[in-house]
Amino acid sequence: MNRMQALQEEGRGMSANPNLVALGTITRREVMRILRIWTQTLLPSAITMTLYFVIFGRMVGSRIGEIAPGIAYIDYIVPGLIMMAVITNSYGNISSSFFGAKFGRHVEEMLASPMPSWVILTGYVAGAMLRGLIVAVIVLAISLFFTRIHLYHPWITLATVLLTSAVFSLAGFVNAIYAKKFDDIALVPTFVLTPLTYLGGVFYSVNALGAPWRELSYANPILYMVNAFRYGLLGLTDVSLGVAFVVMSAFAVVLGAIALRLLERGIGLRS
């Protein structure tokens, strides 16, 4: 055993993998936070989505009729509404939690610890993804009161939720790193995420749009996420499934690399 290993063993005094223990600690802390303030983290999506189902699904949707053979309008919007909840919750969880840690200076607990940057990032992303998943399950459960959804492709459904949640968790993390005040973490959801989500085919099929709006819609990454998820739940999609997964994976990899680089260099964190 060389001196470095000896020092590490001495400092640790344990046999468990320290990085896994640290990762578990951050994830657990994030989950506890989500559950502690459930009225802010879990309840709002349940209420908002119930309203969407009642107003857009039942009241407006009953006049629209079927979107595709055997698929009512309310069934058609369920996947998009679940994705909307996953996106806003994953993004909001990590941006508020990490920026809160920066603002309250308790991020220093982690920065001054031996944890490598990837552990900090993975822990926060895991927490945000878990919130995205919990909210997805809640909204799906609520939708069952209004629709008769069948899981056509469970693995595609799960993979899409996980990838979407990962992409927006990473985006929220980057936002939190650059944010200097609480307003800075509210700007992106208001002026970027909400418009992109509404224009991402949640309430309509892009095939119904004329040029150039239809072509422009293909530049919106949320379109691919909503459609891949809709394929998993309903077997319907406006985009190629392969392209959708390439887009989601590419965003996850690029945003992950950016977030890790920022954390490594201590941008916005270390002076």
């Binding site: 400092g11 640790r12 005094g13 344990m14 468990a16 993998n17 320290p18 990085n19 223990v21 640290a22 578990g24 600690t25 951050i26 657990r28 802390r29 506890m32 502690r36 840690a101 309250g104 200076r105 308790h106 220093e108 607990e109 982690m110 610890s113 031996p114 944890m115």
Partner: peptide
């Protein structure tokens, strides 16, 4: 400067700190 999460409990603050150093729970 005070730099722990004021919304957490002292016990959790200490246990989490150990976790960051890889010390089992």
């Amino acid at each position: 400067e005070i730099n722990f999460n004021l919304f957490e409990r002292p016990f959790d603050i200490c246990v989490n700190q150990a976790g960051f150093y890889g010390i089992p729970r």
